[in-house]
Structure formats: structure tokens, C-alpha cells
């Protein structure tokens, strides 16, 4: 079975999974996952398509609950609490564990209302204008949109839309932000902007990011988990973690052959 590396405890963990198996119906999507995620750092999930990295990401805010056939074996702890315990309210989890999606998905509402959506749900009593401004500033979007807060969020450019979605996630002051390939639909310049943003955000939030882009993982993250996928005799493809280390280690001195091949671009 897997063993946890007893390395120096530089920092606290925020998520901890124990022997996690993820299923859709009878199909085992991800197996034997036991990892810790560090607080106030950026952890990247990389790996070929279909290796289950997005599936794992969506376990951390229980967004997979929306899929009827989804279920897990094993445990996921958020701080010290079992995330899938029966008394846990997924709605509450998602308030603390925010998410930014692959495709920018602003609501068909004004920029202001997009940001204010989450705080209003939570009955935010403070100065909403202030909060909207703060959130947009944190997402480095304030200067772009401060004169058109009433404009529709859907009318912004793709990169701006994604930063709006980040601002929207930040506005509810979450503990963690999950990002599912947040730059895959963006141009290189917008991508760099979002990556710069990540460095600022990690001061306040823990960030988990799924990415196809290895440069992005090496530039932006502190820790990297490399996922791979293998097919069983029935042709079902199951994902698993090959190697999980500090990002420099993964990219410069990977211990596993598969990791070495993937980060050097020989497959995937």
C-alpha cells in the first residue's frame, strides 16, 4: 500500500485523502489516492487526458455530487473533518471551497451582480460596493471594468471573463480555490495574467489547479501531482497518482520513469 513521506513539516495540510477510490457506477475512475494538500500554496495536478485529475479536483468541493452515479470509497478530510460524512452539507463545503472552471462561465448578469451573487446568498451585510471592488482588485480586473460594472459579464473578453470568475469565487472569501484548467480557453497573454494572479492569491488562499500545460505547472505551482491512466482487461481506464512532490523535484529529478517521460514531453 502507499506510504506517506515523513518529510519536514514545513506547512500545514488542508486536504488529506486516504485510500480514495472514485467510481461512476461500477466504473473505477481513480484508485488508491492518498495525498495531502498544503495550505497557502499552489498544488498542480498534471497528467494525460482521462487520468481523473478533474474528477479528483471536484471531490474536494463535492461538485461530483451532482452526478447521480458518483460515489467514493476511502476518506477525504478537509482540515480535520470527514468531507463525505453524512452530516456534512455540500452547500456549506462549496462556500468554503470555491471553484473556477475550464470555460469562463459568468452568469448572464452585470459584472457587479456576478460578484455580488455569492455574498448575497450568504446574507452579506457589509458594504457590497466595497466588497465588489476588493474582489475585482484581487482578480486584477478592477482597472479594466471599474467604469462599466453594469455591463454584462458575458460581454467581456475571454481572459477578462475568467478573471471575473476568479473575482466571483474570491468574493465569498473561501478557504480554498479549485481551478479546473482555468487557462485552457485563454490566449497566452491572458494566461500569464492569470498565472501572476495565482501567486498573489496564494497569500490568502490555498489553490489546487488542474492543468494540461506543463510550463504552467512548473512556473506557477509549489507542489505537483502527476496522474497517469491505465486500462484494465475490460478496457476501463482508471487514473492514479504516479508521483507527488515539490514541483522542482517533479520537473528536475522525477523518481518515476513515467513522470520523466511525461514532463519531458515524450507522451501525453
Amino acid at each position: 500500500m502507499t506510504s506517506r513521506l515523513q518529510s519536514a513539516r514545513q506547512t500545514d495540510s488542508i486536504f488529506r485523502t486516504e485510500d480514495l477510490n472514485i467510481y461512476y457506477g461500477n466504473f473505477l475512475a481513480v484508485r488508491d489516492l492518498s495525498i495531502d494538500i498544503a495550505k497557502n500554496s499552489i498544488t498542480a495536478f498534471i497528467g494525460p487526458s482521462g487520468c481523473g485529475k478533474s474528477t479528483v479536483l471536484r471531490c474536494f468541493n463535492r461538485l461530483n455530487d451532482l452526478i447521480k452515479s458518483f460515489h467514493i470509497e476511502g476518506k477525504i478530510y478537509y482540515h480535520d473533518q470527514d468531507l463525505y460524512a453524512s452530516e456534512v452539507d455540500p452547500v456549506e463545503v462549496r462556500r468554503q471551497v470555491g471553484m473556477v472552471f475550464q470555460k469562463p462561465n459568468p452568469f448572464p448578469k452585470s459584472i457587479y451582480d456576478n460578484i455580488a451573487f455569492g455574498p448575497r446568498l450568504l446574507g452579506y451585510k457589509g458594504d457590497m460596493d466595497e466588497l465588489v471592488e476588493q474582489s475585482l482588485k484581487q482578480a486584477a480586473l478592477w482597472d479594466d471594468v471599474k467604469d462599466k460594472l453594469k455591463a454584462f459579464g458575458t460581454d467581456l473578453s475571454g481572459g477578462q471573463q475568467q478573471r471575473l470568475c476568479i473575482a466571483r469565487a474570491v468574493a465569498v472569501q473561501p478557504d480554498v480555490i479549485l481551478m479546473d484548467e482555468p487557462c485552457s480557453a485563454l490566449d497566452p497573454i491572458s494566461t500569464l495574467k492569470v498565472e501572476d494572479l495565482l501567486q498573489e492569491l496564494k497569500e490568502k488562499y490555498t489553490i489546487l489547479i488542474v492543468t494540461h500545460n506543463m510550463q504552467q505547472a512548473s512556473r506557477a505551482s509549489d507542489y505537483t501531482a502527476f496522474f497517469n491512466v491505465e486500462a484494465n482487461s475490460k478496457g476501463q481506464r482508471t487514473g492514479y497518482v504516479v508521483e507527488y512532490e515539490r514541483t522542482e523535484a517533479i520537473f528536475q529529478s522525477p523518481k518515476q520513469q513515467a513522470t520523466q517521460e511525461y514532463v519531458s514531453g515524450r507522451f501525453g
Binding site: 502507499t2 506510504s3 506517506r4 513521506l5 515523513q6 518529510s7 513539516r9 514545513q10 506547512t11 500545514d12 495540510s13 488542508i14 488529506r16 488508491d32 492518498s34 495525498i35 495531502d36 494538500i37 498544503a38 495550505k39 478530510y77 478537509y78 482540515h79 480535520d80 473533518q81 468531507l83 452530516e87 456534512v88 452539507d89 456549506e92 463545503v93 468554503q96 478557504d175 507542489y223 501531482a225 497518482v241 504516479v242 508521483e243 507527488y244 512532490e245 515539490r246 523518481k255
Partner: peptide, 19 residues
Amino acid sequence: MTAPDFATARRPGSLNRKP
């Protein structure tokens, strides 16, 4: 598999259902 290991951080608020 090897992995970094961290002490558990303190949790901000309750996640439990409030019926």
C-alpha cells in the same frame, strides 16, 4: 507512491447541515 506530508491546519467553520 511518495508524497509530502503536512500537519493538519485548523478548520475555519462548521460544514455541517443546519436543518
